[in-house]
Amino acid sequence: MTPKPQGTMTASCRCGQVTFEAAGPPILSVACYCKSCQEAGHRIEGLAEAPPVLRPDAGTDFVLHRKDRLRCVLGGEQLEALTLTPTSTTRRLVTKCCHSPMALEFKGGHWLSLYRDRMAQGAPPLDERTMTAEKPDGVELLGDIPSYPGHSGRFMWRLMKAWVAMGFRIPKVEGVPA
């Protein structure tokens, strides 16, 4: 077996049949409060024996990685796409084996957002909360990290910087079905 490169993070489903590897530092680590992530979280949590997806405050934690630094090294055939509508521009990759959410992919995006709870030890701390304008009424957010009603300038800058570094390519993630 080839050793993992230094700086590699892994994300695995609960039963261990699916594993992603991410090389290098992530683009950003965020908690998203958009209505789509909330709805998807509820749908996934409604699957048999699915793990929790939503934080107690209704956010979903993600670690964003460049697609050219990610690969599914085990169990890609166990991934299925969950879309909220037939015309959705996002898909959530959920495992068939144990209903673990693994990643969120935007159509045409150069990054993949791994569900932070699926990361093995060493998941990066959250950098910010995003889309907080859509959080449920009555939810009070802690002041421990920056919170933004939409996507922050920093969020957009880091995505753009990563895309420039990738030569404006939008690669496929190795091992992930189309």
Rank of each mutant, 00 (worst) to 15 (best):
L84P: 01
V164A: 12
P51H: 15
T132F: 02
A31F: 14
Y33A: 06
P26M: 13
E77V: 00
S100L: 02
F155Q: 03
P56Y: 00
R91G: 04
L82Q: 05
G7I: 08
F62N: 07
E105G: 01
V94K: 03
R66L: 01
V63S: 14
P146Q: 14
G108W: 04
Q78P: 00
G7V: 13
C15F: 05
M160V: 10
A123G: 07
G150N: 12
L142V: 05
T60C: 05
L104I: 04
R71S: 12
R92S: 12
A123W: 01
R169A: 14
M160P: 00
Y148W: 08
R118I: 02
A81Q: 11
E77W: 01
M156R: 13
L28V: 12
H42N: 14
A162W: 00
L47S: 04
P52R: 15
A103D: 01
D57T: 13
F106M: 11
G150F: 08
M102S: 04
G16Y: 02
D117T: 09
P25C: 05
Y148P: 02
P86A: 14
A58N: 08
T87G: 05
L142S: 15
A31L: 10
A123K: 08
Q6S: 14
S152M: 09
G76M: 07
E140Q: 14
K67P: 00
L64P: 00
R43S: 05
V139P: 06
C32K: 03
L82W: 06
F106C: 01
P26R: 04
L64S: 07
M166N: 03
L64W: 02
E105Y: 03
G153L: 11
G75S: 11
K4E: 15
T95N: 07
A123Y: 09
C13P: 02
T87F: 11
H42G: 14
A103W: 02
P52N: 10
Y33L: 01
L28A: 09
M166I: 03
G143Q: 13
T83C: 15
G59N: 06
G109I: 06
I44C: 08
Y33Q: 04
A31E: 15
A40L: 05
P125I: 10
T19R: 13
C13N: 01
Q17H: 09
R158D: 14
H99E: 05
M119T: 08
G59C: 13
F62G: 05
P52C: 04
E128N: 09
Q78F: 13
D61V: 06
P149D: 08
P3D: 08
I44F: 11
L84K: 05
V73S: 10
R71H: 10
G175C: 13
F20I: 02
V63H: 07
G138T: 05
L79V: 03
K161D: 12
C37G: 08
V73W: 03
E134K: 06
C97H: 11
E39D: 13
W157L: 11
T85G: 07
E45I: 10
A58Q: 07
Y115F: 15
K35H: 12
G153R: 07
V164K: 09
V139Y: 01
T19G: 04
R116G: 07
C98H: 15
L64K: 00
W157Y: 08
G109V: 11
F155V: 05
P125M: 08
L141C: 07
R92E: 12
E45Y: 04
G41M: 09
P124T: 15
D144W: 06
D68E: 09
V94H: 04
E49Q: 07
P5N: 13
F168Q: 00
A23K: 06
Y115N: 05
Q78Y: 10
